[in-house]
Design a binder for these strands. Structure first.
Lengths: 147, 147
DNA sequence: TATTGTTATACTCTATAACTATA
DNA sequence: TATAGTTATAGAGTATAACAATA
């Protein structure tokens, strides 16, 4: 019976894993396609990371899971567009601090708003009860996401 | 009062939209990075679409939201790898039907299993109540995703 | 000598434009 | 003439390897 119960639990886990993955992937895909027009997704993502203060290229590369040279290129594009700027690190001459410019702040706010427009539209078609259900389950989703 | 309530509702909607988006994106990103090693994501996605029967390149391009030439290239790679095959359309000589080969079925099953391993691991660390909560909210998530 | 960041080079994925075959 | 698919060519993003500057 322990075996049967274990197998059952495992099947349920696998099925839930697959269903939840598909739902989250579909939502991400739609958000991605419906929202971003003014800036490429990976560039927008870097701008988002800089929202709480400056970061080094190395930190950004690790967070975004790309190599250091790739991040350098992305930073170059953003800097040429006037959206971020490089500043020398106060304590370590090897490092560089990347921060958003006011133009970067503006663009981020604008695109972030656009992006959530689609999601808000989808949510507005739900019932109050369904939205409350989503709100309640958010902590669990964040746990799954690993934060 | 109608205005106050409306504003409040709007704020809640925006906040929920943003939180839900972030959670889903984070989960998708982790699934993507943790899982797929044996095949590139966009190729795997095409294999997945062919799970319920053959499709034409045009249909695949539309579903995957890429241009027809891009899909042709992806199909070429998959065909060269022996994972899909082209067959003439029975009714319309202009069209082509793409279907998975047995090797394509095998690879899909294997990678799909790997991919859900990470998600299953995350889910296994939740309580029974939390998993039940996720299971209950899935239909709402699918509604948000637009299906 | 180790670390941080950049430059050099190549590969993959995607797109637009032009072409072929069939309806 | 319109449609489905492919081929030609170019642009964007990423990776590995090699290099420069600082700790």
């Amino acid at each position: 019976m322990a075996t049967a119960r274990s197998t059952n639990t495992e099947d349920e886990l696998t099925s839930l894993a697959s269903d939840l993955r598909l739902a989250c992937q579909q939502i991400s895909r739609r958000v991605r396609y419906e929202g971003t027009l003014a800036i490429a997704p990976h560039k927008f993502s870097v701008l988002a990371r800089l929202g709480h203060g400056p970061l080094t290229p190395g930190e950004l590369a690790e967070i975004e899971r790309v190599t250091a040279p790739s991040m350098t290129k992305t930073i170059n594009h953003l800097a040429e567009a006037g959206l971020v700027e490089r500043r020398p690190h106060p304590d370590d001459g090897r490092q560089v601090l990347i921060s958003r410019t006011p133009a970067g702040d503006d663009l981020f706010d604008r695109v972030a708003g656009q992006r959530d427009t689609w999601m808000s539209g989808q949510l507005s078609e739900l019932s109050d009860a369904e939205r409350a259900e989503l709100r309640r389950v958010l902590p669990v989703l964040n746990k799954v996401a690993g934060r």
